[in-house]
């Protein structure tokens, strides 16, 4: 098949603007979802290590549910189904009055999905510290809350940074699924350009290279954080 190359389409108005806007939405979806995933994921991860069997069970149920349903299905549930299941006024608000419902559905969906994976990393991080620190904290007279605040969490935080890097990369990549509920992020915009100009290879190349650059940026940022917080005398490279 004959393919007509035309790379200049990428810097032509309005297509360059579409790409930039796609990048903006990718960052806004991934960034907001990342904040939600961190807060929720750390909470659920800590729940799974607490002495109370009930709280542990809640944490486990959360992780199993959100890990075993595909992200695409979860996004559809948040976007299409949640407003139907809520009482009439709340559902109506979600569908009609909330600005950018597809954006918020994507953020909440992606955030809750990633939180389950973060929770697993946090749990593993806390468990890897070993029982000795926990018992030492109790022996010092710290309450459970204090032992988490002053002993377990600061140590665990350093253990989980490397897996957090790959979750941060995943959330950027997974934000592409937002296009299925109508958020025109980077992948969605490159498809728009393909549909409008038939220059599919150029459009997809532009989006692909942008993702590669985003990956490199995320890796660089996370490595800087790792280096800043490393405890001297441990195996972490400083």
């Amino acid at each position: 098949m004959q393919y007509r190359w035309n790379w200049s389409v990428l810097i032509t108005d309005p297509y360059l603007g579409w790409l930039v806007s796609g990048l903006k939405w990718t960052l806004m979806v991934a960034g907001a979802a990342w904040l939600l995933a961190l807060v929720l994921g750390c909470t659920v991860g800590v729940l799974r290590t607490l002495p109370s069997a009930w709280l542990r069970a809640i944490g486990t149920a959360y992780v199993e549910i959100f890990r075993n349903v595909p992200l695409l299905v979860q996004l559809f549930l948040w976007y299409f189904i949640l407003p139907e299941l809520l009482p009439y006024s709340a559902g109506h608000w979600l569908k009609r009055d909330l600005p950018l419902p597809e954006y918020w559905s994507a953020v909440v969906g992606l955030g809750c999905f990633t939180a389950a994976r973060i929770a697993e990393q946090v749990r593993a991080g806390i468990e890897s510290i070993g029982h000795g620190q926990r018992m030492a904290a109790v022996a010092l007279g710290l309450t459970t809350a204090q032992s988490y605040r002053y002993v377990l969490l600061p140590l665990a935080a350093r253990h989980v940074l490397p897996p957090f890097t790959s979750e941060a990369l995943n959330i950027v990549k997974n934000s592409s699924l937002a296009l299925t509920i109508g958020v025109l992020e980077l992948t969605g915009q490159s498809r728009q350009i393909e549909a409008a100009t038939f220059q599919g290879i150029e459009a997809l190349t532009a989006a692909t290279l942008t993702y590669v650059c985003l990956t490199l940026v995320v890796i660089a940022v996370m490595q800087t954080i790792e280096r800043r917080v490393a405890i001297s005398g441990t195996m972490g490279r400083t």
Partner: peptide, 20 residues
């Protein structure tokens, strides 16, 4: 390279390239 690109992107790529 493949690990730094969303799966969605890869699906679109092959959907475009295989017929070509």
């Amino acid at each position: 390279g493949l690990r730094s690109v969303p799966l969605m992107m890869v699906i679109f790529w092959f959907y475009l390239l295989v017929p070509l």
